[in-house]
Structures are given as C-alpha cells and as structure tokens.
C-alpha cells in the first residue's frame, strides 16, 4: 500500500516537472530576448527603432536601425493573409460541420490538416515558381515577388489552424439551438448564419487570431516569395521584407556583441511580444466559448 502510494506521488511530481519545462523554456526565451535587446537600446533610441523606416545596419556610411518598413511589411502580409484565409477557412469549417455529408467530411478534415504537414520551404518554392509568375501575368506586373504573393501563401499555411479550431467551435454549439431554430421554420442557411455562427463567435475569433499568430511568425515562405526589398511598401504589389525574414537573413552573418546583433534581438522581441499578445487574446476568447458550450 505504501509503495503504491510512493509511486503515485513519484509520477505525479515527475509529470509536473516535465510540464514545468515548457513554462521555463518560454520564460527563458523571453529573458534572453529582453537582456540582449536591452543592449541594443543603449546605442539606438527607442523612437528611432520603432518609427524610422530605414533598416540598413551594414550601411556604406551611417547605419540605420528603423523597423518601420519591416513592421508595416509584416502587418501588410499578415492582414492580407487573413483577408484571404478567413473567408476560406470559416467557410470550409461551416461546410464541414453543418452541411457536408459524413463521408465527405471524413475526407476533408484530414486533407486540410495535412496542409500543416507541408514544409514551409516547399510552399515558398511554389510561391516562386507558381504563384509569382501567375500574379505577374494576371495583374500585368514586372514580377510576382511581392506582398500579395506572401499573403496568398500564408493564407494557405494558416488554413489548417483556422479550419480545425473553427470547426471545433461550430461543432460545440448545442444541438438544441439549431433544433429550436428549425422548429421556428428557419432554413439551414438561416440557422447557420443567424444562430450557429453567432453563438460560437468567440471561438471563431480565437481561430482567426491563432491563424494570424501562425502567419505572422512564418519565416521561410515569406523570405523566399516576397522579394525582400527594404523599401517601405506602397501596397500589395510591392516587394516587402518582414521582421522574420530580416532576423533569418542577418543573424548568421552578424558578429556577436555588435549593435547590429543586439538590434536583431530587438526585432525578435518585437515579434515575440506581438505573437504573445495575439495568442493570449485568442486563448482567453477560446476559454470563454468553451465555458459557454458546456
């Protein structure tokens, strides 16, 4: 009896320690980013870092460390991806959980989830050889390496997250709601639009935000397909260079301990804070719909 009790306690503590590893890792990453970014700001003023447009740390004459253009590029690509991905993802989710026959759903769901298994280099490659030339032809552009290309690819990459979470949310709507709606004479379309979707709104918003978090942090795909010009983009047809791409391109070449090195940490910290805020907001919303669903 005592021995059984001991093992019970032992495994409980071991699993708790394992769970703590993830939390400690997150805390450690945050601390590392913070201490290294701190050093950057002894050379760069905060206002220059966030508001100046020009990022040219290895300039011919005076280096400049402004992330304005990159921040705008990141937002442009992410919002573009959401504009494409949200209708597509929510539409797919609604179709799958409400309208599709069971056999079709059993085919669709794993297919969408498989999209998450495609490596980002492969998607980036498709951006260069397929989406880029297509955009250039359709919009009569000199080339297709621009923000729109990145947005399309990121929309595809955020689909699995979007669809999967949105489908769960729609699925969690109590059957009684729908039955009541049908009893009042509403059609399936009216029920979906006026009853089902509004009653899982917070879950859908959580799906959108997690999809956005996925898109904002993606690196390889945008690095390959968006042209990486450092100029401030004027729209979706201009090449862009995102924060993630900048860190990925420059981290390897930068001697440790230089202002440039620390400035890259500051870029990473900015990105980390943005995704953290998005994820926290999404978690809160998701929690609220889970409670409501029960």
């Amino acid at each position: 009896m005592l021995i059984r009790h001991f093992w019970d306690k032992f495994w409980e503590k071991t699993l708790a320690a394992l769970a703590l590893v993830a939390v400690l890792t997150l805390g450690g990453i945050f601390l590392l980013l913070l201490t290294n970014s701190w050093k950057a700001f002894s050379h760069i003023s905060l206002s220059e870092f966030f508001s100046a447009a020009a990022w040219n740390p290895a300039a011919y004459e005076t280096p400049t460390f402004g992330i304005g253009a990159m921040l705008w590029s990141t937002l442009l690509v992410t919002l573009g991806a959401m504009a494409i991905g949200v209708p597509l993802g929510l539409g797919t989710a609604a179709f799958m959980s409400e309208l599709a026959p069971a056999r079709l759903r059993n085919l669709l769901k794993p297919a969408v989830e498989m999209l998450a298994a495609v490596p980002s280099v492969v998607i980036g490659f498709l951006g260069i050889v397929l989406v880029g030339p297509f955009l250039a032809r359709v919009f009569h552009l000199p080339n297709g390496l621009n923000a729109l290309n990145g947005a399309i690819l990121l929309a595809v990459m955020s689909l699995p997250t979007l669809v999967s979470i949105a489908e769960d949310a729609i699925h969690a709507v109590p059957k009684a709601y729908k039955e009541a709606s049908y009893a009042l004479g509403a059609t399936r379309w009216e029920t979906l639009l006026r009853v089902t979707l509004p009653s899982c709104r917070s879950g859908l918003i959580a799906a959108i935000m997690l999809g956005m978090g996925r898109a904002i942090g993606e690196t390889m795909t945008v690095l390959m397909a968006t042209g990486n010009a450092t100029a401030m983009p004027n729209g979706f047809f201009d090449p862009v260079r995102t924060l993630t791409a900048t860190v990925a391109i420059e981290m390897g070449e930068t001697p440790q301990g230089t202002t440039h090195f620390y400035a890259l940490f500051a870029c990473a910290l900015t990105l980390f804070v943005i995704t953290l805020l998005i994820n926290v907001a999404a978690e809160r919303l998701a929690a609220s719909y889970r409670k409501k669903g029960q």
Partner: peptide
C-alpha cells in the same frame, strides 16, 4: 556603387534565383 544600394533592390536567396527572376521580368 561606392554608396548604398537602392532600397528597392530585391534581395534573392541565391544566384540561381536571380537568374530565374531576371528571365521572367521584362525590366530586370
């Protein structure tokens, strides 16, 4: 150049990508 590149320079991942892009872009 003896000065900075234009910020509109598209920075490609490798030389093979530059050639592929130039081949497809009439003003390249």
């Amino acid at each position: 150049l003896g000065r900075d590149f234009s910020p509109t320079l598209k920075q490609m991942n490798g030389t093979a990508q530059i050639i592929e892009a130039v081949r497809n872009d009439p003003g390249a």
